[in-house]
Design a protein around this nucleic acid. Structure first.
Lengths: 347, 347
DNA sequence: TCATTCACTGTAAGCGCTTCCACCCTCTGT
DNA sequence: ACAGAGGGTGGAAGCGCTTACAGTGAATGA
């Protein structure tokens, strides 16, 4: 720490000159690749210290032909779901010595270009659901960029990690049937693959019990979207009547945020939850536990999802594994009070 | 789209060869820098198309001496606060043509090295609160890397963006006094600069009313941390009695997550909120509105915080502005029911 | 004592791009 | 008809690093 103003960073040449050696030796000394005499190493390290030298990442990457970074594309960062996944992803990536570049697509005009740019900056990518259109996904796969698809049905020659949807949806629907409900509504459908799977599970159970499954009411997967959907489904729309003419006994929501919005709408319409209408979510975000009433939902392992994606990507990048792999993580039905009263309520 | 297997991406040399021109011309044609005959441009573009050429980001960056990317360091991505800020940040950064690299420090061993690595990958950095120790911040400043500090007291020669804390804390405390409370507890103190400012505001008001301000009970700024703090403050600790010997009438929490935790603890201890104890948060995260009871809190413009930081950083990087700047965004007291009953309750 | 070996070190060729500079060749103005 | 002005282009020098490859000298074994 001799120089308090190091300016814009020294290069390996200056270090070499100061240490009286060649740049090759400096590189070797720093990366422990190839032999370096103890004395020489000493001199190099001192010069490095004195100049507070840090190798230029750009130079290193260009020479090595790798970025030591990977990217992730998601629709939105608002709401806990994606944040949690990102958390798990970043954690593992860091552990594996990779930086993380993020790209959120919501409301973005030139998604294609942004994604292409991102691809050029990383060794591998994770893409969430249907944020990127199929043609581009295909282009990425063909460019041999390691790719992991998250929460989406697999694609040829790319990995996929997602959490179980259909079976847990069946469990959820079965539970609701156990409450005796016979009229249902589905809120939220964003063309997201995982949501579609959930509806499939629900439909299957309802059909199996002779109930004609309702068409999902599309809405944005946010509290606001859920609120709007809630007004429509529960009768607050201009017509004063619910869509189907009759108010459903239970509203199954695509995720927790939608459910929270529907609860707000119900409250505003003077309906009691779950007395007048049962409401369920999906994800088990923090607010689900703290909501009034607490939300019955399906917990998915959000962090783990990100973590697994990061590991899968690492294998692909390192070439440890070359055959594509598809992983499905288990979920868990969490019964709280929003779906109706229970003798012993889970907290 | 002639070739369905492009392999690992063509270089500018191959494009040049195919177009029958020099790489200099290809570069000029692509970046519109310098004159290129119409016919030539045509040939180049065709070759680019045929090879589906994308300039290597590494090459471009190395030649231009810029990354077109910036970084952000935050303690944790769990919880809505940081996610929201990140959202605003990434949005503006993308708009300005910069990628975003993220680094979360919680539970990370070699933070220093990770941060240094990050610095080497970007044109500028945003650092949250006290995630990075002062010496390193100083080192970054000296290295002339554009730097914006978020939610933290300014440092010489670096920008700072934060939201107002002290005055709104005074408003909050004043409001609570208006309810007639005389005994208070403060929950949460993570050495975060912004929290300290909040306590300062609260203390000032309490002192001004002849109330001896309590020492904050340190706890992690999470729901779990808040729960633990709540048990201690409200009497659920092994001793069976609150810390001060007497249960406080109001618990002012460092943020909403802590408040939610304290509410859980209160509930578990059979206490009514706000009947037996009033509780307030800070941030106005989504769950605050949906909690039972709904949380009185101070809303801070989380997205805007990120957005402003991104813009400030951009000015610094572009050199549009060279003098450091410090910006403080306004906050707003949101009164809901957790602090006591009100004639007309805000929703 | 001499041919080998081997620990060290330097030279230089990339990695893929941008951009200064020089060059050539049409157009102008006179 | 001729100097001068540009438009259009290629050559080549970087940007900062890694890493064959080719030395150098000292130590080894016979």
């Amino acid at each position: 720490m001799s120089n308090s103003d190091e300016g814009q960073g020294a290069t390996i040449y200056e270090v070499a000159q100061r240490a009286g050696v060649s740049i090759a030796t400096v590189s070797r000394a720093l990366r422990n690749t190839g032999p370096v005499a103890a004395g020489t190493r000493e001199k190099v390290l001192r010069a490095v210290e004195e100049l507070s030298f840090t190798p230029s990442r750009l130079g290193v990457s260009l020479a090595q032909g790798r970025h030591a970074a990977n990217g992730i594309v998601f629709p939105d960062l608002s709401g806990p779901y994606f944040a949690e996944v990102l958390l798990g992803y970043e954690e593992v990536a860091a552990e594996l010595g990779r930086s993380v570049l993020i790209l959120s697509t919501r409301g973005r005009a030139a998604v294609q270009d942004l994604v292409r740019d991102l691809v050029g900056r990383v060794d591998g990518m994770v893409i969430f659901g249907r944020t990127v259109e199929d043609a581009l996904v295909d282009e990425i796969v063909r460019s041999r960029t390691p790719l992991v698809l998250l929460a989406r049905d697999p694609v040829e020659r790319a990995d996929a990690v997602s959490s179980e949807n259909t079976a847990s949806a069946e469990a959820l629907a079965t539970h609701l049937l156990g409450h005796g409900y016979t009229t249902f509504a589905l809120a939220g459908d964003d063309d997201r693959g995982d949501v579609t799977q959930r509806w499939t599970g629900v439909r299957r159970v309802l059909s199996g019990h002779g109930i004609r499954p309702p068409a999902p009411l599309p809405c944005e997967l946010t509290v606001e979207g859920g609120y709007a959907a809630g007004r429509t489904l529960l009768g607050g729309n201009p017509g004063g009547k619910p869509a189907g003419g009759r108010r459903p006994e239970a509203v199954i929501c695509a995720d927790d945020q939608v459910a929270l919005g529907v609860i707000l709408a119900a409250e505003e319409l003077g309906l009691d939850v779950p007395g007048d209408v049962a409401i369920t979510g999906w994800d088990d975000i923090m607010a689900a536990r703290h909501a009034r009433p607490a939300l019955t939902t399906v917990r998915q392992p959000m962090r783990l999802l990100g973590a697994r994606a990061a590991r899968a990507l690492d294998e692909l990048i390192k070439g440890t594994r070359t055959v594509p792999n598809s992983e499905i993580l288990p979920t868990q039905l969490i019964v709280r009070s929003s779906c109706g009263s229970h003798p012993l309520e889970e907290k």
